[in-house]
Design a protein around this nucleic acid. Structure first.
Lengths: 232, 232
DNA sequence: ACAATGACAAGAGCAGTGCTCTTGTTTGTT
DNA sequence: AACAAACAAGAGCACTGCTCTTGTCATTGT
């Protein structure tokens, strides 16, 4: 993370690192994470496979870099569509985030599988990935915070949240400032799970193809969740 | 699927097939699906790797068999806990199903990843898997049907379901008899997505470890969904 | 009872993988 | 100019899924 001197060698290294990532990203989008091969990347760049290991110490490290990029790409996409909505239009912002997630996932199924599918076996997501992974969660929580600040309250649901659950929520409440009320947080986390559950079930082929019109149904669910959250 | 003659050869084949599946299942639970190796299975059974291919034409076929077994295992586990609840206790049945899914997933994380995680790359789930995959969905829909028959109605949510959404729901309504009302189906599908979304986010490490007490929070969410469904 | 047929196990082998080690070259620093 | 670090390339190891060939056994038809 140091500024890296602008020597010929340093710029060459930076360029090659990017080239490796780009080639890997292309392969990832084409054939999926498990079939990603450092030898194939090396072939694509017309270099020796052993040379790639000078830039990424292992295949997993390369995969990790791709995961970080995917999270960032998703985060940027969601933030972009959400930013385009008038601040006061809480329902619109919620809709933008929800559909933004699904649209991105459908456009980048392999990346979505990498970030939100089963973790690559024998591979534990390193710390580098958690910060970029937070971006869309933060966008969602921010909308909830604004809703709370605007005096909205979750429409339905158990009136009061048990003390145990309040404790269970813990630091989640303080992810935004001012902190979320437990009731809002519970509904918010539920909506979050519903969103990703829906996208996962759709993308991973669990909603029997042809039996359901995803576009329509997802829109219905999103609006329902929005209503549950008291956004409109 | 033919009754298979009871010759010495046939029984030997059946036994070896089972032995292969058992060894593969053990490996799967240990090291995950991607690391599952037919050569390792062959080593475990002290046979030539090429001999395994006489029983399963490819590694994917072996994986498919394991997926079917996993779905059946999950289905059986959920049905077992649900059956233990008094029929009239709709909320209890719902809770049993929900917690049954999560408990099974936590006890068999690799199997869960196989069934509900990202599909193994370059691998499309064949038709054999869809029937066993339906078991838990059917259990959930049956509870909803019974709730509907008992006069319950979804607590919250948009009063009426749009015509487009009714059409989108399509055959899902008729999965049980008598068919589900659209309002119930929407809520039910949403709850279904929330359930699996929650379990996936928890198991795949997206809910920041330590920040949330899963046991308590999941119970809260389940009860909230139950209330949304009008089950108590 | 015998011979033909099919199922089977085993081994060698191919093409591919991640990764390491060694060798020789280029670049940047003192 | 001298030295050290960074680099590319190649060979090689151990592994993978899978195929093909060879030889053996059980089952079946005559």
């Amino acid at each position: 993370m140091s500024p890296a001197p602008r020597t010929a060698r340093a710029t060459a290294r930076a360029e090659l690192t990017r080239a490796i990532l780009d080639s890997a990203a292309t392969q990832l989008a084409d054939i999926g994470p498990a079939a990603l091969s450092v030898r194939a990347v090396a072939r694509d760049l017309e270099m020796a496979s052993s040379a790639v290991y000078r830039y990424f110490p292992s295949r997993d490290a390369l995969l990790t870099a791709l995961i970080v990029e995917a999270y960032d790409d998703l985060g940027a996409a969601v933030e972009a569509v959400e930013r385009a909505v008038r601040r006061g239009d809480l329902r619109g912002r919620w809709r933008a985030i929800a559909h933004g997630i699904r649209d991105w996932a459908r456009a980048h199924p392999h990346q979505y599988a990498l970030t939100h599918g089963s973790p690559v076996p024998g591979y534990a997501a390193p710390a580098d990935t958690v910060v970029p992974a937070t971006r869309v969660t933060l966008a969602l929580l921010t909308v909830l915070r604004d809703a709370q600040a605007a005096g909205r309250t979750p429409a339905a649901g158990p009136a009061r949240v048990s003390a145990a659950e309040k404790a269970a929520l813990g630091p989640v409440l303080a992810f935004v400032d001012p902190p979320l009320s437990p009731a809002f947080a519970v509904r918010g986390l539920t909506a979050w799970a519903t969103l990703f559950g829906h996208v996962s079930l759709e993308l991973f082929g669990h909603m029997h193809r042809g039996v359901l019109d995803y576009d329509t149904h997802f829109a219905t669910v999103v609006d329902q969740l929005g209503a549950d959250l008291g956004l409109g």
